[in-house]
Design a protein around this nucleic acid. Structure first.
Lengths: 193, 193
DNA sequence: ATATAATTCGTACGTTTGTCTTAATTGAAT
DNA sequence: ATTCAATTAAGACAAACGTACGAATTATAT
């Protein structure tokens, strides 16, 4: 028992360090040694707990996916109408872009990384699906009876809304003058009024 | 003169090979040697023409940006109304996702790479800006007088539309059942009717 | 034809990479 | 107190990496 907790804390320390490294350098520029140093752990421990580099990154994605999804679901639950939940979702992205842009950068970076490994791709695809499903459940369904949305499936609308947030956010990250663009994220709500 | 042409063709061979490598493996998994082999050129030639690895990738981004932008502009020019141009733009993404998904993957991958180098970030930001400007010029301006768009700047709307296409496309790439999702890209047009 | 510059080639250098192996240390159960 | 398994540590390993350098080749101009 005490064993398990200590293992957990060691393995978790590595995971946290790995995230921190990816968030500040990008997955392509991070080595096992970087992560080990950041975690204050000897190199071979990474292989001990996660077998190899891909195993470690799989763990990162799984870990973060859980957090992302839970966070979004929790926020959405608090809203009392679809319109309010749209605001909440937009604000969630706005706040992330302002306060913890490295979180979005990491999300984006890991998505890019997933393009080149079938295993990671599957994981990341599940994350996008889950997010889209949350949006569908908490937002889109209330709109699906509107005339102009009749000919589109609510799944398609959900994915599109998620895509808009994701695709606009990356432009904010790349841009030099961010604040104005962050505000313009609110434009998204206009389309659903 | 003959020199310049030959240089061009050598340098271009390298550039093409570099693109091919990135498109099939991802920038993080590509080495200078991979590219040299693919180009049928000796390793040191890459440094001769592009100084170092970052210099090569800068050249790739500049090269592709030019092509992307020209292609999109040309397609949009052919449309005769804003509505028709929306279709054209959507179809452009649909066809790319169907026929040359590696093109989009590369675009996405290079964007991710740009997050970690100020030089590349600036380049990629310019590309997104240019694309959004094209969309604004050829599509959004005709809609800006619509009641529901009055309170949003046409710049914001353009970036959002681009973001939607970009963010939905990556979901298509990640997904296993792509065809249905590709079709649902058409949903975008609904919002502007 | 010769000289000069531009290009191509081959190779070697010093690092850094991920992984593996072996030994030391720790914790828990007998 | 002893045994056994789990964990931590340290180091070695070959392979791959980006870059640099000098020699060979080719093209251009005189």
């Amino acid at each position: 028992m005490t064993n398990e907790i200590k293992n957990m804390s060691q393995a978790q320390r590595i995971l946290n360090a790995a995230f921190k490294c990816v968030a500040s350098e990008g997955y392509a520029n991070v080595s096992m040694r970087n992560i080990a140093d950041e975690a204050g752990v000897v190199l071979s421990q990474l292989n001990y707990y996660y077998k190899n580099k891909e195993g470690l990154f799989i763990a990162i994605i799984k870990d973060l996916s859980k957090d992302y999804l839970k966070e979004i679901e929790n926020k959405l639950k608090e809203g009392e109408s679809a319109k309010e939940r749209i605001y909440i979702l937009i604000e969630y992205f706005q706040n992330m872009l302002r306060d913890t842009p490295e979180l979005f950068k990491t999300f984006f970076d890991l998505t890019s990384m997933s393009l080149w490994s079938p295993t990671l791709q599957k994981l990341q695809n599940e994350l996008f699906n889950d997010m889209a499903n949350s949006i569908e459940k908490y937002i889109i369904r209330e709109f699906s009876d509107k005339e102009k949305f009749r000919c589109s499936s609510s799944k398609a609308l959900s994915r599109m809304m998620l895509g808009t947030l994701f695709g606009t956010s990356i432009q904010v990250i790349l841009a030099e003058e961010k604040e104005e663009m962050i505000n313009s994220l609110l434009t998204l709500k206009v389309l659903f009024e």
